[in-house]
Write a protein that binds this DNA or RNA. Structure first.
Length: 104
DNA sequence: CGCTTGACACCGT
DNA sequence: AACGGTGCCAAGC
């Protein structure tokens, strides 16, 4: 049984619809924990490639955050733009509007 | 079993 | 409003 922290994180992120974004803290909050750092660590491993849209997870202040995948943050921004999320100066445009509130 | 690290968050200055 | 330092949780060595 997968009930590992990382797996839960992946499951939640997979539920994020296209064009929407969420924060590390929100994901942790959904799991009833404050391990927002662990969430980032899980995404860093990201064994599931495009199936888990880790690029849709950003910081709470609206900044992009990081991206270990090929292309780095640059690529992350590109994908977000492609999803319809505009990014200016490393910050999400209309961050609150694009924010996806997780159930919990 | 214990210390260090990290794709962050929060508070103080 | 911007920058720096400190704290939280889980995973890795």
């Amino acid at each position: 049984m997968p009930s590992k922290f990382c797996d839960k994180v992946y499951g939640i992120i997979k539920k994020i619809p296209p064009g929407r974004i969420t924060t590390y803290k929100e994901v942790a909050r959904c799991l009833n924990t404050r391990a927002y750092r662990a969430v980032g660590a899980a995404l860093k491993a990201n064994p599931h490639a495009p199936e888990v849209p880790c690029h849709r997870v950003v910081k709470s202040d609206g900044s992009i955050g990081g991206y270990s995948a090929k292309g780095g943050v640059k690529k992350k921004i590109m994908i977000l733009e492609d999803e319809g999320v505009h990014v200016c100066g490393g910050r999400i445009d209309s961050f609150k509007r694009r924010f996806f509130r997780l159930g919990k």
